[in-house]
Design a protein around this nucleic acid. Structure first.
Lengths: 338, 338
DNA sequence: GTCTGGCACTCTGCCCGTGTGAGTGCCAGG
DNA sequence: CCTGGCACTCACACGGGCAGAGTGCCAGAC
């Protein structure tokens, strides 16, 4: 087990390295922090920390930098979550309050998070699996052509075109619309299928085919749209990444553009509470030099989606975690109100 | 006026520079191209081209590189549009044919264009101003709370919540829905306002307020949503930009994220035909080192939106223009079919 | 046992001078 | 008007030398 002071040394190394972006040496450490011991002692501690794999030196006779494992220890044991200042809190609230619809909320959140953390922000749209149905609408565009519109409680609207085998009368349409709504409004997506299974039976022979088609399209929409969407912003912040540009940021940009990859990444994080994945802990190779801080957010107690930031492993963890948590809270509030 | 050969020299310089990314000298030129004259002669021609501002040298005694003005001349007079190979065409068609809805069409188009040109792709969603109304739906969510859903011929759906001053009966609602649709379906957005102006008068006193509110929300939606949306992809290609990274690509990334900026950029381009804006011809400062190739696309004869790519001024203009034009055509076809 | 000061050692980064090569401009002659 | 020749100019790569930061280790103090 590491002594108290050695942990303190690690903390100091992380802090200094995050601030200066340069390997930090024993002398500089004693100057900037009140450790109460001499550089020589620090050197011994550093050697121990290096043996344990928490820090490393880029070249012999350079200062030390934290390893992924070092950051991990720092995040788990040494760092708190730094709360935002109250002007910052106010700014967040003001900025988010202006949103007019769901796209706007997500868009503003992304920009906010990117600005606040000066990193790349990722915000997942509220997931449909956990949402409930607010309304199902059926329109006849032509005698044998319907449009299904699904409205969720998070304000999303999905539409699907349906070609029917046989014309479908206005009366039957109104009937189906009413019955559908009475059964599914307010329900969670996952709960819908059994509730509508027997609907076709209550219709006349001629209409049953169409009713079945409509139902299957509806269920398909519920499932399909579980593929969640996300919005990404602040990629310009990648330019502050490091000195050896192209090699580092190219794979990151590529990963960010592959929304599938990012969704998988978010999916691997805990549903509630904050998750920090550091460097190689990220499954995706392109993100090996980045850390990802994510947290779930939602309108009620339960998280309906996740948001987070992607930045260099050398990031200000307490600050970033504070910003991510705060933004998630406010977005949750906004969603609950609307 | 420049002699035939000097134009030929400029063309050769542009081609070589685009290929090698290095300043091109007189000797290398005579080796790679059959110009039929000696390096010394080329040098004279180069001096003349430099006097006219078409080429420049980064340092004394380095080769020449084209200036913005040089590229302009190249694009206007010297370069054709390089048609795609037929495998490429087939790939485009196959890839776009798989799209299931508008978002998917736009998403696939962006990815396609980015891959094909190896640059950043920008695709504007089909504009609402030029679209027509396919259906307007009114739903009662609560006695005094309506939802307006607007469906366009390009497959977009917009919804708005409306709080009414007074409860609005189901009969009146059906009435309003029917009258609205009979008047506006098939109309262009811009033509709608005069067509619905007198609607409130035909309703009973009690309902007039609500009808007016609904109309104003509808008109607002038509106008508001004229703010067009766009999708951007292929930003990872920016890493192939140049040697002096951060300074060059940072402003470009920033500009790309500001959709407002990009929309303005697209707006400045011609509505029909291809537009190429080279370097400083772009109003936005961050894009001074990029060229933007755009073209309108649409389901019919008329363009409903634009798409294009953003790349370094040193780009393969004929190839890029060919890809952009081809993609625009196929997207137009897809839109027309759906 | 633990901390400390001292010392020798090892690198990296920087500066500087040199040399080479690519490229130019100019000029005189075909 | 084209060409070959020639002198000139830089950017860039190479290599030595120097300074500085940082380390590891060891012997001695508390």
């Amino acid at each position: 087990m590491l002594s108290e002071r050695r942990l303190e040394v690690l903390r100091a190394i992380v802090q200094d390295y995050v601030g200066t972006e340069e390997p930090v040496g024993s002398k500089a450490l004693t100057e900037r922090h009140q450790l109460g011991v001499s550089p020589a002692t620090i050197r011994n501690d550093m050697a121990a920390l290096e043996d344990e794999g928490f820090i490393a030196q880029p070249h012999t006779s350079a200062g030390r930098i934290p390893t992924d494992k070092g950051y991990r220890l720092f995040v788990d044991k040494l760092a708190g979550v730094k709360p935002l200042s109250s002007p910052e809190r106010r700014a967040i609230q003001n900025f988010l309050d202006g949103a007019v619809d769901l796209d706007d909320v997500v868009g503003r959140t992304v920009r906010l998070l990117a600005q606040l953390t000066r990193q790349v922000a990722v915000v997942q749209y509220p997931s449909l699996t956990r949402s409930t149905v607010r309304h199902v609408e059926l329109l006849a565009l032509a005698p044998a052509r319907l449009m299904l519109v699904l409205i969720t409680d998070t304000g999303r609207v999905e539409q699907r075109l349906i070609d029917c085998q046989a014309p479908f009368g206005e009366t039957s349409l109104a009937d189906l619309r009413a019955r559908l709504n009475s059964r599914v409004v307010g329900r969670r997506f996952a709960d819908v299928p059994p509730l509508v299974q027997d609907l076709p039976e209550s219709f006349e022979q001629d209409d049953r085919g169409t009713v079945s088609t409509v139902l299957s399209v509806l269920l398909e929409t519920l499932v399909e749209e579980t593929e969640e969407r996300l919005m990404i912003g602040g990629t310009a912040n990648l330019t502050r990444f490091g000195h050896d540009f192209p090699l580092t940021i190219r794979p990151v940009l590529e990963a960010l553009e592959e929304h599938v990859v990012m969704l998988k990444l978010l999916g691997e994080a805990k549903d509630s509470g904050m998750t920090v994945r550091i460097g190689h802990e990220n499954a995706h190779e392109g993100l090996a030099s980045t850390s990802v801080v994510t947290v779930g957010y939602g309108s009620g107690d339960e998280a309906v989606a996740k948001l987070g930031v992607v930045g260099p492993t050398r990031m200000d963890y307490p600050g970033t975690m504070g910003a991510v948590r705060a933004v998630a809270r406010y977005v949750g509030q906004i969603l609950a109100e609307s």
